[in-house]
Design a protein around this nucleic acid. Sequence first.
DNA 1: AAGGGACTCAACCGCATGTAC
DNA 2: AGTACATGCGGTTGAGTCCCT
Length: 286
Amino acid sequence: MGRAPCCSKIGMNRGPWTPKEDTLLMNYIKAYGEGHWRSLPKNAGLLRCGKSCRLRWLNYLRPDIKRGNIASDEEDLIIRLHSLLGNRWSLIAARLPGRTDNEIKNYWNSHLSKKVKNSAKNVQNDHKEASKCVQVPNRRKKQNDNQDSYNGEMIIKTKVHQPKAVRVSPLSITRNNSIESMVSGSSSNGDGNNNNNNGFDHAEALNCPWFWSDHKDADINGGEALVCENNHSDFVNDYDDACYFSCQNYSETTENMLDKIYEEYQQLLEDENEPPLDSFVKSLLI
DNA sequence: AAGGGACTCAACCGCATGTAC
DNA sequence: AGTACATGCGGTTGAGTCCCT
């Protein structure tokens, strides 16, 4: 006997969502917060599987979803993070504010994988051409083996770490965006039912390119979205303010920050005294 | 204009993990 | 400790659209 389905599919709507369904879902989440996905469709009057509702919310309806084309700096970061993390889409998405893992995965599969493959091919050809003319000393050659090019710039080719897919808790990625704090980790309160807003620090949010919340399910950057249970209205207002602020400042700060994040990843890789990437990635996970 | 292949992306699926009891 | 349920993740699918012939 196989695993029981997540919900009865009899009488359920499938396929594309209608605007009416979207409205029902948005209104419900606005009023009661997200979570409890299994019971949500029934309570919201939707003929949808809970999983489907969750996906629709996370990938499409969340207010912090960033629409529009992926910018070149984002693209660059995706490529670099993918070289480090492999197909860990949720981890990669966690470093790209407003982007969903699904979006990044699709973008990778439709655009970047080919682009990277072509770049690799070109580099290979270039190396072939170059080796016809110049004998590269072994040591130098070895160094070149660790590099790849993308859009004319050299990027470091590192071993792709592809551990078994594990669930990622957004809490493990702390809100000051530093690797040190990621490794040391901010602790979870372990409380799945958060009615308290005590984690939402507006001032702190305003100091971040995008804000981080202690609220277990309110990490807009970690693939999780705003949750507000009963006292949602104030929280939503704070959230909207923070979002507005983060959008305004995002473009000014993101590029440097993304580079910084990547440099920190690299630093960990290069520093022999530090735990290997495997440990680092584990430190991102609970 | 038609048709068919390529591409995109929302949605689905199965499995792994977390959590409550 | 064991079990059932809830949730998250990555792979895959398929409908819609675009583009070329």
